[in-house]
Design a protein around this nucleic acid. Sequence first.
DNA 1: TTAATCTTTGAACGTGCATTCAGATAATCA
DNA 2: TGATTATCTGAATGCACGTTCAAAGATTAA
Lengths: 200, 200
Amino acid sequence: MHSDNQTFIETARRAQLVDCAIQAIAEWGYARASMAKIAARAGVSTGVISYHFGSKEELIEQVVATVVTVGKEAIEPHVRAAGGARAGLRALIITNLDFIRTHPAYMRAMVEIIARGGPVDGSGPYAGHGDAAIEDVQKVLHWGQQTGEFRHLDTRVVAVALRAAIDAIATRLSAEPDLDLVRYGEQLADMFDFATRKGQ
Amino acid sequence: MHSDNQTFIETARRAQLVDCAIQAIAEWGYARASMAKIAARAGVSTGVISYHFGSKEELIEQVVATVVTVGKEAIEPHVRAAGGARAGLRALIITNLDFIRTHPAYMRAMVEIIARGGPVDGSGPYAGHGDAAIEDVQKVLHWGQQTGEFRHLDTRVVAVALRAAIDAIATRLSAEPDLDLVRYGEQLADMFDFATRKGQ
DNA sequence: TTAATCTTTGAACGTGCATTCAGATAATCA
DNA sequence: TGATTATCTGAATGCACGTTCAAAGATTAA
C-alpha cells in the first residue's frame, strides 16, 4: 500500500506543508509564520502539522533540506561543467545569483530561517549546511591552486568571504527588490576573479 | 540637579541597563535575553526597564547606538589617518577585525540584534546603520577611484561584499572562538587589495 | 520636618505561541 | 460487509514573554 514506510497521503501532505511553510515564511517572516498560519494556508487544522512532523523544528528542517537540495541541483552541474577552476568559480557565483533571482521565495525563507531559526552559532536548523556551503567554495579554490590558476591564498578566508557576499545579496534583495542580480553577479564574479587569479 | 533634562540616577541606570542588555544578548542570544533576564542581571525588577526605557525596542535601539558609536570611534580615525585609499581600505579591514577581536560581547550582541531584532528588511533597530556602514566603505572606494589607485569597479557591489565578509566573521567567531582574527584580517585585506587595485 | 517628586517593586494582565488529545471522519483491509 | 488503521479536527493546555500599575520606598526641595 505504501513504499518507504510512508503513505501516499503522508508524502503528499508533507510536501504540501513544506511548501506552505516556505511561502508563509517568505511572505510574513519567520516570527509571524506560526503553525496556525501555515496550517491555515494549507487548509488544514494545526494538529495536522504535529501529526506529520513531530514539531515545528522538524518542519523547518525539512524546509531547509528542500531548499538546499533544489539549490544544489541547480548550481553544482554548472560548476562541474566548467573547463577550469577560474571558470568554475565564475560559474559558482553566477549560478548562485541566478538561483536567488529565480527562486525569491526560497531564498527569503532561507534567510529568515538562518537569521531567526535558532541560536546564531551551531545547532539551528541550518547547522551543518552553512559549513557545507563554505566547503563547496573551498573545493573550487583548491582546484585552482592545484592547476596553478589561482594565487597563493587562504582558501578558508576567501570561501567565507564569498559565501557571505552571496548570502548578503539575498538579504539585500528583501530591502531592494529591483536589484539587477545579473549585473550584480557579473561584478561579483569579476571581483573574485581579480582577488584569486595568479599574476597580472 | 541634572543636565539635559535627565537625572543622575536616570543616566546611570540607562547606561547600566544597556550594558546588561549587551552582556545578556551576547551570552544567551537575542531570543533568550528577555526583559526579566536583563533586569535580573542588573539586580532590579522588570518594571525598571519599562520605567527608564519606554519599551524593549527602545532599549535595543540604545544598545545598537552605543555599539555603533564606540565602533566608529575605534575605526574611523585609522581610516582617515591612512596616506591613501589603498592604505585606507586596508586600515578599514584591519581595524574592523581588531574591534571585533577586542569587543567580542559587543559584536555578538550586534549580530544577534541584526539577525533577530526585527524584520529582515528595513525598520528593525539596526535600520539605517547597515546602509551607513556600507556607505562608509563606498567612500573609501570612491576615494581610490579618484586618486587612480583602484580599478574601475562597482563601488556598491564591492562595498556590500566587504561589509558582508566582515560581518560574517563576527558570526563565525561564535562558532569558532579560537579564530586567529589578526591573520584573518591580513588575508582579507590582501584579498580586497587584489580585488580593487589597478593594473598589476 | 514636611511635602513633592522620582524611583522601584513584584504581582497581575493580556497576548501569542507550539503542542496535546479525545473524539470524529476517512481510507484500507479481510 | 465489518474491522482496523490512518488521518483530521479544534478546543484546551501550559508556557514565556512584554507591559502595566497600585503601592512602597527613596530622594530632593522648601
